[in-house]
């Protein structure tokens, strides 16, 4: 422990501070016509930060000498917030809100918290504010988004620590006690840049469980000469589980995925149940074999956080418990689609 703290301070003092200084300088010269006062103030601030951090760092070095331990370099360390002001006119109406964004720097592999200002009326969403920041303050900010109506699943992120879709999260009703907003990328997924996470392994897990409607007679299935009979009651059985938009928020919330990356996770398992519960499907037994393991259904510790955060009301936790039951008692195939 001691060793890793030493490393943190060393790195903060010796590498972080010059970077900080550099960032300030670049900001002042490139991003906008800053005033001379702002320039001097940020230089002074950077210098003070360097002295303070350097002092602490040296102290840690002495501690390290006394204790003789030098731990591993931590992968991600959080630098102090960089204050970045809007310099351009922000269109729209409403009050000015401070938005802190914990950005993942793809080069340094560190988080950098930056502070922006956005305008918000009572209808402003978190995504709306982020798009304004990108267009009017800082075009280097990256996040995923597309439909802005809660159906494409692009904009999962954490707003004041809560996993949400940014597009359907009202900004003013999400303020913290200081009247501010903090946005950060999801956990449970590798990071790419700023708020953007890597979905490759998430998609791979979804693919691995065979989440598609299986018919023994594929020729008949594809020829599709008639409509399968399925009553509205039978549809209701799987419909709630079919609303999954693959946003990845359940993985962000899942304590198991965050400690065992091999756990296939609530999204994929909920989709196993979605197809298993569909009266048209004939592939349930096979899918159950695939997930009857500690990285499958038995990895779930029923924390239930996946169901709490799902923005579409899918209940992966219940799906997983139902699958556990099916895995234990065996499963009778369905697939009768000719009942009148």
């Amino acid at each position: 422990m001691r060793g890793s703290r030493v490393a943190i301070w060393l790195y903060a003092g010796m590498i972080g501070v010059p970077i900080l200084l550099f960032v300030f300088l670049v900001l002042n010269f490139v991003s906008a016509p800053y005033s001379a006062i702002g320039m001097r103030a940020s230089l002074a601030l950077a210098a003070m930060g360097m002295i303070a951090l350097g002092a602490v760092g040296m102290d840690e070095v002495f501690l390290h000498r006394r204790e003789g331990a030098f731990g591993e370099v931590p992968k991600q360390l959080v630098l102090p917030a960089v204050m970045r002001e809007n310099t351009k006119h922000i269109p729209g109406k409403g009050r000015i809100i401070t938005v802190r964004i914990k950005r993942f720097n793809s080069t340094t592999k560190n988080f950098e918290t930056e502070t922006y200002r956005a305008k918000a009326d009572e209808l402003q969403t978190v995504l709306g504010a982020l798009l304004d920041i990108k267009a009017y303050s800082d075009p280097t900010l990256s996040m995923r988004y597309s439909c802005r109506m809660g159906i494409c699943g692009s904009c999962g992120m954490e707003v004041n620590g809560k996993p949400v879709l940014a597009c359907e999260t009202n900004l003013l009703s999400s303020l913290d006690t200081n009247g501010e907003i903090e946005v950060q990328p999801m956990h449970g997924h590798p990071l790419l840049k700023d708020l953007v996470t890597d979905f490759d392994s998430f998609f791979e897990k979804h693919k691995s469980v065979g989440a598609n409607l299986y018919r023994k007679d594929e020729k008949e299935q594809y020829e599709a000469k008639r409509i399968y009979k399925q009553t509205s009651g039978q549809t209701e059985k799987f419909l709630p589980y079919s609303f999954c938009i693959m946003c990845g928020l359940c993985l962000d919330a899942c304590p198991v995925v965050n400690s065992n990356p091999n756990f296939v996770g609530p999204q994929a398992l909920s989709q196993v149940y979605r197809y298993n519960a569909d009266s048209r499907d004939q592939g349930a037994a096979n899918r159950l074999v695939g997930i009857d393991s500690i990285d499958g259904v038995w990895g779930c510790e029923f924390a239930g956080s996946c169901s709490k955060v799902c923005p579409k009301g899918v209940d992966p936790a219940s799906a997983i418990q139902l699958l556990k039951g099916d895995a234990m008692k065996g499963f009778f195939e369905k697939g009768d689609v000719d009942e009148e």
């Binding site: 594809y222 599709a224 409509i227 009979k229 009553t231 509205s232 799987f238 197809y275 048209r280």
Partner: peptide, 22 residues
């Protein structure tokens, strides 16, 4: 119509009546 039937066969949860029709 063939497209709708095909989508039925790959899993689209069409809204249905009590008799099982779309």
């Amino acid at each position: 119509p063939d497209a709708i039937k095909f989508l039925d066969h790959i899993g689209v949860p069409w809204s249905r009546d009590d008799r099982g029709d779309i």
